[in-house]
Measured scan of single mutants.
Amino acid sequence: MDVFMKGLSKAKEGVVAAAEKTKQGVAEAAGKTKEGVLYVGSKTKEGVVHGVATVAEKTKEQVTNVGGAVVTGVTAVAQKTVEGAGSIAAATGFVKKDQLGKNEEGAPQEGILEDMPVDPDNEAYEMPSEEGYQDYEPEA
């Protein structure tokens, strides 16, 4: 019985440690998101679009440190934060509304985080759909 109880105690310690790591990862992701939003706020009209992409990228980098179902929630929060940063930029006159959601080359930025393969159960990952990809044929 002692062996059984000791095993359960060790398992509990492992769960607590994993929860603490997840909590730490979420806190880091939130900190990076805040950094990115402050970065966007300090940019001029020309830099705002690039700044919004930076927020998304920093958040995406930190999301990889967070495991399990938390990833889905962090990704949703990050996307809403990026959308909010863009709205703030438009409201303050840093950028025109028609410039939001495009990178410096004018290509749409939507789907940055949505296409990231995420499995809350950590069982399997699927690649994003290939609808947006084109076949590449090298020139002879």
Results as ranks from 00 to 15, higher is better:
Pro128Tyr: 12
Gly106Val: 12
Met1Ser: 00
Lys96Gly: 02
Thr22Pro: 03
Ala76Val: 11
Phe4Trp: 07
Asp115Ile: 04
Val15Gly: 03
Asp98His: 11
Val40Asn: 01
Ile112His: 14
Ser129Asn: 15
Gly41Arg: 13
Asn65Thr: 13
Tyr133Lys: 03
Glu46Val: 08
Val16Phe: 15
Lys6Ser: 06
Gln99Val: 10
Glu114Ser: 14
Glu137Met: 13
Gly132Ile: 13
Val95Tyr: 08
Glu126Thr: 05
Gly41Val: 05
Gly47Tyr: 11
Ala78Tyr: 09
Lys58Gln: 05
Tyr136His: 13
Ala85Met: 12
Gly106Ser: 10
Thr33Ser: 06
Glu61Pro: 04
Ala69Met: 15
Gly51Glu: 01
Val70Leu: 14
Val118Ile: 09
Gly41Thr: 14
Lys21Trp: 05
Leu100Asn: 13
Gly67Asp: 02
Tyr136Trp: 12
Gly101Ala: 09
Glu137Tyr: 02
Thr64Pro: 05
Glu137His: 04
Gly84Ser: 11
Gly132Trp: 11
Asn103Ile: 04
Lys21Thr: 06
Val55Arg: 02
Thr44Cys: 05
Lys80Gly: 05
Leu38Trp: 12
Gly84Gln: 13
Val66Gln: 02
Asp121Phe: 05
Val26Gly: 00
Phe94Gly: 05
Ala91Cys: 06
Leu100Arg: 01
Gly132Asp: 12
Ala29Phe: 01
Leu38Tyr: 08
Glu123Gly: 09
Met127Arg: 12
Tyr39Asn: 10
Gly106Glu: 10
Lys102Gln: 10
Lys58Thr: 10
Val66Phe: 14
Glu130His: 14
Ala19Leu: 15
Pro117Gly: 07
Gly47Thr: 14
Gln109Ala: 12
Lys102Arg: 01
Gln79Ala: 06
Glu35Trp: 15
Pro128Ala: 10
Asp121Thr: 06
Glu13Thr: 10
Gln62Trp: 09
Thr92Cys: 04
Glu137Ser: 06
Lys43Thr: 06
Gly31Ile: 15
Asp2Ser: 05
Lys6Tyr: 07
Ala78Arg: 08
Ala89Leu: 12
Glu126His: 10
Ala17His: 01
Gly51Phe: 01
Ala91Thr: 01
Gly41Trp: 03
Gly31Phe: 12
Asp119Ser: 03
Asn122Thr: 02
Glu126Asp: 13
Lys21Glu: 02
Glu130Val: 03
Phe94Asn: 06
Glu35Lys: 10
Asp135Trp: 05
Ile88Tyr: 08
Val118Leu: 12
Lys43Val: 14
Ile112Met: 10
Val49Gly: 04
Gly67Asn: 01
Ala89Gln: 03
Lys43Gly: 01
Gly14Glu: 04
Glu110Cys: 11
Glu131Asp: 09
Gly73Ile: 13
Ser9Pro: 00
Gly31Val: 05
Gln134Gly: 11
Phe94Glu: 05
Gly132Arg: 06
Glu46Arg: 00
Gly106Phe: 04
Gly106Trp: 12
Gly14Asp: 07
Lys10Val: 11
Thr81Lys: 05
Glu83Ser: 08
Glu20Arg: 03
Ala29Trp: 09
Val70Ser: 01
Ala27Val: 12
Asn65Ile: 07
Ala91Arg: 02
Val71Met: 02
Ser9Thr: 04
Lys23Ile: 03
Gly41Tyr: 10
Ala124Glu: 12
Tyr125Leu: 10
Lys32Pro: 01
Ser9Asp: 08
Gln79Val: 03
Leu100Ala: 08
Met127Glu: 13
Gly93Cys: 07
Ala56Glu: 01
Val37Phe: 07
Leu100Cys: 09
Glu130Trp: 12
Lys6Ile: 08
Leu113Ile: 14
Gly36Leu: 02
Glu57Val: 10
Asn122Ser: 13
Glu110Gly: 04
Gly25Ser: 14
Val71Ser: 04
Met5Gly: 02
Val26Ala: 04
Pro120Leu: 04
